[in-house]
């Protein structure tokens, strides 16, 4: 016989796992449903609860059984230019990660380790931008990007005399840089790296100075090696944010062959020409999976690495 105390404890553990699983089902069901939908041979069972959470495949006799088919996942690559979107996502995200890390590191070093005119003012100005709703910058930045493109056009015409309009493809509308540039210099990255640099012991820097190292060498040889965890955190956050970014990319990337996954897949799936719902769900799963795999390896940076952000 269990004592009532023991029984109570078991009951509370069971209750806890039950609520944990219930919450888990709430957060996971859209993805699980999409996966099962995409693996089914058609939509017959897709809206029947709870059958819709297991993939159903039609057999020769016309009956349905539980099974899986990859035919819709293959269709994704035929019906929508999935690999083009994927390539664009990779290019845009790489540019954003490299740009954000380089610019944040460069800006954070003097802010944390050098004394110069206007230091506090610049730091406060950078931090104050956190208060601005970035969404209201969409219109001015759109105009800026259009003008940058026109300026590149004019520059090409003046300098080379050619009216091929190839330079504006580098910086104007429908350009990778146009998507990435507005976001790479931000308060979050600079603040994160400043905190990391401030934790480096002064003796280390003094020793390097005595040895005659330049500021660039100190940053590269002394500061960077000891702050790799923070740089990794910044890179990982930037990667996931940029991979998922939708609104600005959808404004800049009007040309279909330049769109990243989050924009291209959304437009194709909600547009008038969207294909079967099975293909749609397969495309959704294919879009989410790269982030999930990445998250599986780096999740500690998201789930425990943000402690510093609160304290």
């Amino acid at each position: 016989m269990f004592k009532s105390k023991e029984l109570n404890r078991i009951f509370s553990v069971v209750l806890q796992y039950a609520s944990l699983s219930a919450f888990g089902l709430f957060t996971m069901f859209p993805l699980l449903w999409a996966l099962s939908f995409g693996l089914s041979s058609d939509g017959s069972y897709a809206y029947l609860f709870p059958d819709s959470f297991l993939p159903h495949v039609a057999d020769e006799a016309g009956g349905y059984g539980i099974g899986a088919t990859l035919v819709w996942f293959e269709r994704v690559f035929v019906e929508i230019p999935f690999s083009v979107y994927f390539k664009n996502s990779v290019i845009i995200t790489t540019l954003a990660v490299v740009g954000t890390v380089v610019i944040s590191v460069l800006a954070a070093y003097p802010l944390s380790r050098m004394r110069f005119f206007g230091r506090n003012f610049i730091f406060v100005a950078i931090i104050a931008t956190l208060m601005l709703p970035q969404e209201t910058a969409l219109v001015p930045n759109y105009i800026t990007i259009v003008k940058l493109g026109n300026f590149a056009d004019w520059l090409q015409l003046t300098l080379t005399g050619s009216d091929a309009a190839t330079w504006k493809k580098l910086i104007g509308m429908n350009s990778y840089l146009g998507v990435v540039l507005p976001g790479v210099a931000g308060a979050f990255g600079i603040f994160l790296m400043k905190q990391a640099f401030e934790a480096v012991p002064q003796d280390l820097i003094d020793a390097a100075r005595v040895d005659g190292a330049t500021e660039m060498q100190i940053l590269w040889r002394v500061m960077l090696p000891v702050t790799t965890p923070s740089i990794a955190a910044l890179a990982i956050f930037t990667l996931v944010n940029q991979w998922n970014e939708y609104i600005w990319s959808s404004i800049v990337m009007r040309a279909k062959d330049m769109q990243p996954l989050a924009v291209g897949v959304f437009n194709d799936l909600t547009g008038p020409l969207s294909g079967s719902q099975n293909t749609l769900m397969a495309a959704i799963v294919l879009t989410v999976i790269p982030v999930l795999i990445f998250f599986a390896f780096t999740q500690r940076y998201f789930i425990s690495g943000m402690d510093g952000a609160v304290k």
Partner: peptide, 14 residues
């Protein structure tokens, strides 16, 4: 945490 790292446009379609 998975909903947080899912693109809002993709989650919106589902």
């Amino acid at each position: 945490y998975i909903p947080v790292i899912t693109a809002i446009s993709i989650a919106g379609i589902v």
